[in-house]
């Protein structure tokens, strides 16, 4: 079953009378448990695609069905609920609340949850332990290294137990060691059954995915399965 079904999605921005078409007729289906890399040069429309996929923006036209629900026409309240329950975001710039402890940053999505679980703190602690930060629970983002901040972000993206993890250049602000660590975390999340969508301009990072979609000028240029075994052999 398709978890994400985008049919003829267009997105344009109107700016002082000029209409800029960012996405042109994008059709895209992603199955549950897929590990998809979306690549393309900057300005190609990757971020806009991610914003629509992540329900942070609505398409100008086209149909978007997420988990069987038509989300392209939802109002703000319902769209926010979808973000809250079904999507976890991992950003390049981490986007943690400054001055707030790692633990509280991780629990932030549950503040807005309709039916938050009872053991919020306990869950957040478990997730932080899972990403190796059990000794940094009460540190604020300012007291954490880049790699550590990214791990807090990943823990936050998992707190609502979402079906989809949307990662926007997750390694962009990290050194290579932390980058590799982060990618390993994603690899293990896929094994747990999460659907991961990775947006990057880095071919090497994209190679972790099982399927690579390349975007060029607002359109899908190519969509191919990655043969990992063939790769390993060639190395």
């Amino acid at each position: 079953m398709n978890l994400i079904e985008m049919n003829s999605i267009c997105k344009s921005y109107r700016n002082i009378g000029f209409e800029t078409k960012v996405l042109k007729d994008v059709t895209l289906h992603i199955k549950e448990g897929d590990y998809v890399g979306i690549i393309g040069p900057s300005g190609a429309g990757k971020s806009t695609l991610m914003a629509i996929m992540g329900c942070l923006a609505q398409p100008t036209s086209g149909e978007y069905i997420l988990d069987g629900e038509q989300v392209g026409k939802l109002n703000d309240r319902k769209l926010s609920r979808v973000r809250n329950e079904k999507i976890g975001f991992v950003f390049q710039a981490f986007h943690l609340l400054p001055g707030v402890s790692a633990l509280e940053n991780v629990t932030l999505p549950l503040v807005y949850a309709k039916n938050p679980p009872g053991n919020i703190k306990e869950r957040a602690r478990e997730l932080l332990a899972k990403v190796g930060l059990e000794h940094r629970l009460h540190h604020t983002p300012g007291q954490l290294s880049g790699g550590e901040q990214q791990r807090v972000t990943i823990a936050r993206s998992l707190i609502s137990d979402p079906r989809i993890i949307l990662a926007d250049e997750p390694t962009g602000n990290l050194d290579s060691k932390n980058g590799i660590e982060t990618m390993k975390t994603f690899d293990s999340l896929v094994k747990e059954g999460k659907t991961i969508i990775l947006i990057t301009h880095d071919q090497e990072v994209a190679q972790h995915a099982g399927r690579i979609i390349s975007i060029l000028d607002g359109q899908i240029a190519s969509d191919s399965e990655v043969n990992h075994e063939a790769q390993t052999r060639s190395l």
Partner: peptide, 12 residues
């Protein structure tokens, strides 16, 4: 932006 991304509505 962060709050909206993790599920805050406009009303929130």
């Amino acid at each position: 932006g962060i709050r909206r991304a993790v599920g805050a509505t406009r009303k929130d």
